[in-house]
Structures are given as structure tokens and as C-alpha cells.
Design a protein around this nucleic acid. Structure first.
Lengths: 240, 240
DNA sequence: AATATTTTATGATATAAATCATGTTTTTCA
DNA sequence: TGAAAAACATGATTTATATCATAAAATATT
């Protein structure tokens, strides 16, 4: 959809450190060469779109380094963030496999290096490489489970609990800055709200509530987790 | 978990009419024999459990004839129905693929005939049968999409819209009784609420509201759709 | 058949969260 | 650098929906 401005070093997939725990972990030899040779490596600046809801999939996106949000826009134009991708994650394959248009939009949350593997190449490798197939199934299974749990929480848990859960999820997904307790992602309050599934004002209000309670500390967009134990308690994660 | 009381005729998968649009549509020959020979065909009465949240998967369940609900129990013990299965649908494979315990419970909504394929057999066929692999991926992809859309609606749409949507979904999934406009599934109001993601009282109230408005007609558990066009309008399905 | 139990139905009330409103701070960019 | 726009913050108000309460109907059970 949008044209990424720059490219980055075309590193062979074989030596890509992110591959080990990606779906390509067990792909190698000629098949990996095929992928590596056909891919293009682009840099997406913050806010740039990888692909758009309603668009046709032409291949899969492999995040080499960066943070990507995947979201669906609801009836009233409100964004719902359904997934977050980090280094080593693959995007856009779901719609491709189902032979459908994208049902979500992927946008870079910060400057990100992303490799693009053309549809034909990915599908042809998928057809021959059994391990890749298994990995794709595993990934889809995990994501389906996560979506179903999120769905349940959305239906049953109050906003405050979901917010706490979201903060813990952000920590788990993107980790902390160095050895501080500051979340490594910087999201706007609106984005946090769209992740939690609530109004922006409510997210802001509850965040500053947690701040006052000393559970977290807010400095601009930086969120520092002061009392993780308490946050876990608030999230009320009996299950999972 | 529960022991189904009876079995039903062990029909070879090759001649099963439900296979054509199931994930086994393209599986045949020896591989299909292997599945067919190893499967067991059981009858589950209404309310009987196929598998339980937290249990270990030992195989996949293939619905030959019947209606099954798949649900997750939230913190406060409230059920959230995340999927409904009908003839030809396969259940329990997600957890198996991810090598995890079941994250949901499957319960028969009415007397159902279900075939069970042992884990080892399913996985071994999956390993060699490419078409099956592709079908599984497609199915997972579709379900993931549906879960993400449901999640978005849950976060953004009011209960009344979601209820209307649910009624249309029930019609689409299980169809009507004969050539009447009466939904072929009979769910309790509580189950409808657990599908919509709301309180039972709210579901009851809104159903009788739709009844008064002449959009549907309620006779006990039977729901007749009087004005589908209006129901669609209420559901506000601009997207999808 | 009679009693107990569950499900359905509605009204009253409470409350969480959305919306509206306004001011402040931060960021953008001309 | 300064003006404009966007993001953040917080108070006031409204509203959708959950919860509580009670009764009738339907189902199940003895």
C-alpha cells in the first residue's frame, strides 16, 4: 500500500538470528535459499502501513527488527488492535492461506526492518517443506487460542483488569528498556485503549489511577512498572 | 472425559457425505483407510462432554451429525461460547497441533454422532498428506479471522447489535427447521447470552424486545425469524 | 400427580464505562 | 521559533448494561 522509503542489508535468511524461533526455524538448504533470494528487505518508518484491510495479499511479511500493530477498524471507525508483532514474527500469511483479502491493517509502531517474501515463493516452499507447514499450523493454533481467550476476557472482565493485563502483555511481548522497568514500546493512550478495548478517556483515567496507586509510573509515553505483583493481582489472571 | 453411551454405524470415511466439505475433502486412498479403520464412532447425548478445558488431547473429533458448543469458562465461572460446530466440522485439533491442553470445553447441544480419530493416526496422516495440511491451515485461518472479528465486535458494538448478529449467525450455521423460519438450534437464553457475551437477563430482555417489535417470534426455546431484513439492519453489519 | 428445580420473564436499582466538555501539555511542522 | 494540531488529563453527565429481586412458567424428579 505505502512505499517504504529505504531498504536494509539483504542478509541471507540462513544467518538471520531471528530465524531460530520463527516459523522458518526448520527450513533450510535450497528451500531457504529460494526464500532468501526472492525476498526484499525494507524499512518502514513509524506509522507506515505494511498492508491494509481489504487489500490483496501478495506475500508474507517477516519482521526482522521492529514493532508492528495489526488492527481492525470497526463500524464507527474505531481501531481495535488484535495482535502485536515483534522481531521474528510473520504477518499477512493468514489471509494468503485463506485466499482472502486482508481483514486487518498492519502498521509500524516504530521504525522497523521487514522482509517481504512473494506469495508464489512462500506457497511453493510451503507445499514442499513439511516442517514449515507444521510451524504455520502451530502458529495459527497459538494465535487462535490467544484470540479466543482475549475474546472471553473482553466479554467478561472489567476494563481495569484488562488494562492491567494489557500492560503485562506489553511487557511480555516487547520487554523492558535495558534493565529498567520501563516498557520498551511507546504507545499513545489511544492505542492502549484500542488494545484494551475501551474509550481513550477511560484508558487515560485508569492509567493515572494506577499511577496514583504506585503500581506504575507515567512519564509521558513511558510506562514504568513499579509493582508487578500488584499489577498481576489487579489483572486477576487466575486462568492461563 | 465423559463416556459416550452408544456407538453408531461405522461408516467408511470414503462414503461419508460430510467429508466433501470437511478438511478431509482431499484425503483418499490408503491414508483415508488408515483414518477410517482407526476411528471410533460414538453418540453423545445432549449435555455430554466431548472434551474438557485443561484435559490432554488424545485425538480429533469429527462431527458426523449434530451440534456442539465450544466454550471457555471465565474467572467468575461464566461460560463464553467461542465456537459452534456442525456436521462435518472437526474439533480438538487446535490444542493437539500446539501440543497443549485443551483451552476450551466441547459439549453436545443435542444428540450427536461424533467420530474420534486417535492422535497418532491423525498426526501421521497429516505428516504425509499435503492436502490435509493445507485444509487444516485454511480452517485455522478462517477461524482466526472469525475470532478477531468477533473480538472487535465485542469491544465495539452494543449488545442489541451483537444479539441480532448472533441470531443471523445461528441461522447461517445451523439453518432452519424444514421450510419454516424457525432456527434449527434450540439454545437456552443463558447460552444465547454466553454466545453474545452479555448477562442472561439482558439477552432475555432484548429478545423479547425484538419479539414485541415483530422482528422475531418466540415460542419457548424456538426462535422464528419474521423480518430478516430488519434483523440485518439491527445487526449493523457494514463490515464483512 | 405432586413437588422441587430450573428456566424465563420483568421491574427496580446500581454502576461501570462512554460521552461530552474544557483546559493543559506535548508534538508537529511551516 | 512560533503557531497549529494532536495528545493528554480530568471533571461532569449520561447511558448502557449488570445486578438484584421477585414471580410465573416450564422441566425435571420423586
Amino acid at each position: 500500500m505505502s512505499i517504504p522509503t529505504k531498504t536494509f542489508d539483504h542478509l541471507h535468511c540462513e544467518v538471520c538470528s531471528k530465524r531460530t524461533d520463527s516459523i522458518f526455524c526448520c527450513t533450510n538448504g535450497e528451500l531457504l535459499d529460494e526464500i532468501s533470494d526472492s525476498k526484499s528487505c525494507s524499512i518502514y518508518k513509524k506509522g507506515q502501513v505494511l498492508f491494509n484491510e481489504g487489500g490483496h495479499p501478495f506475500g508474507v511479511y517477516c519482521v526482522n527488527k521492529g514493532k508492528i500493530k495489526v488492527s481492525i477498524v470497526g463500524d464507527e471507525g474505531k481501531e481495535q488492535i488484535v495482535r502485536l508483532a515483534k522481531d521474528g514474527d510473520v504477518l499477512g500469511y493468514r489471509s494468503m492461506l485463506a485466499s482472502e483479502r486482508y481483514n486487518a491493517t498492519a502498521i509500524a509502531l516504530e521504525e522497523s526492518q521487514v522482509c517481504f517474501i512473494p506469495k508464489e515463493v512462500f506457497l511453493s516452499v510451503l507445499k514442499t517443506d513439511r516442517p514449515l507447514g507444521m510451524e504455520v499450523m502451530k502458529l495459527l493454533s497459538t494465535q487462535l487460542k490467544e484470540a479466543e481467550i482475549k475474546l472471553t476476557h473482553l466479554a467478561q472482565k472489567p476494563v481495569r483488569e484488562r488494562l492491567a493485563e494489557t500492560l503485562l502483555f506489553l511487557k511480555e511481548t516487547y520487554g523492558m528498556v535495558d534493565d529498567t522497568n520501563v516498557l520498551a514500546v511507546q504507545l499513545s493512550r489511544e492505542e492502549i485503549a484500542n488494545l484494551v478495548g475501551t474509550a481513550t478517556e477511560t484508558a487515560i483515567r485508569l492509567l493515572s489511577e494506577l499511577n496514583k496507586e504506585g503500581v506504575i509510573e507515567l512519564v509521558g509515553k513511558k510506562i514504568k512498572i513499579i509493582n508487578q505483583r500488584q499489577l498481576l493481582r489487579i489483572a486477576n489472571l487466575n486462568d492461563y
